[in-house]
Write a protein that binds this DNA or RNA. Structure first.
Lengths: 169, 169
DNA sequence: GCTGGTTATGTTATAAGCTAACGCAACGGT
DNA sequence: ACCGTTGCGTTAGCTTATAACATAACCAGC
């Protein structure tokens, strides 16, 4: 286990970073959250979470399914993975990248009312969240001015992360 | 044809508004845009556009398919509808609501570089776009600060439109 | 340790969303 | 009339997601 610098949070982690602590952090947080909310972090949920959190990329439900099948031997039904993902999403450990029908782990433990801007790299698939209070306030204002009662706002940005655009242009 | 007030643009139209001018406006704009860009507003494209623009709601591709089947007698292949939708999206006449895998007509004719906040009512399904330059600048700043080169930003807000939350609470 | 309610997962089937590949047809310029 | 381009039809298949119902695991209280 090489000594790389700790992952940059928030933002994109160093590409050569040691991911083990990231993963461990997510799992630890899962244990806390599930415990606190009286939910059960079952074997299946833990395995699904581990797959999703095994990188900083967004993965499809069927990717998770395939990976679990490769590791675990037998193949689960899609619904099983979706159920686990739903639970993890509700717990706030995993978020859904709507613009890509994919899921990514939340490595940062931001507050309950998620007001994070999601950045998704088109090249490497990495996903990062950054704070955006001002942006969300602006959205709330704009919505309010239209007589709209906002319940949730989704901000997803596509583009190139630092590594990828540094490399290719 | 009753004389209701003209549709409120931008924002949500009055629920009892006369929709005919909205629809006619979209079609007229389509003719202009297709003409200007040397594209062909074919029968199929026009019919798909009419279905999408027949309300201020977002509709799924298969809804369009079903409605055309009901009207036109024979049932198209999904791909035909998707091709038409793609063309209309490229032309800027229809937008895709990513968070719902659905499509809605653009009734407002905003400038090319679309920087609009999309408001989608969870109850009635109505969709409206409102300007959000400041919001998008904030997003660009936040992305830039993370070393991210933004190519496109998506802002979709779920909630209750004026009519719906006035009615239900 | 059995019982019974609750929660989680398995099983089966299917809905919903989307696209590849290929061929014919319609359009439009020369 | 010809031919290149664009649009559409047809067939087939993939990806994403959920409904409905059965079984299993968990756990609180007796």
């Amino acid at each position: 286990m090489t000594m790389n610098r700790t992952p940059t949070v928030p933002g994109f982690p160093d590409p050569g970073h040691d991911h083990a602590p990231c993963l461990a952090g997510v799992i630890a947080r899962a244990e806390t959250i599930f415990e606190r909310n009286g939910m059960r972090l079952t074997e299946l949920r833990r395995r699904v979470l581990e797959e999703v959190a095994s990188s900083h990329r967004a993965v499809g439900a069927y990717d998770v399914l395939d990976r679990l099948a490769r590791k675990g031997g037998r193949r689960l039904a899609p619904i099983s993975v979706y159920r686990a993902l739903d639970t993890l999403v509700v717990a706030g450990l995993v978020h859904r990248l709507e613009s890509r029908n994919a899921y990514f782990a939340c490595h940062a433990a931001h507050p309950a009312n998620r007001r994070q801007i999601v950045l998704a790299c088109e090249q490497c698939g990495a996903v990062a969240e950054v704070a955006g209070s001002a942006v969300f306030e602006g959205i709330a204002d704009a919505a309010g001015a239209a007589g709209f009662r906002m319940s949730q706002a989704l901000v997803e940005v596509s583009g190139a992360c630092k590594e990828c655009h540094g490399r290719s242009s």
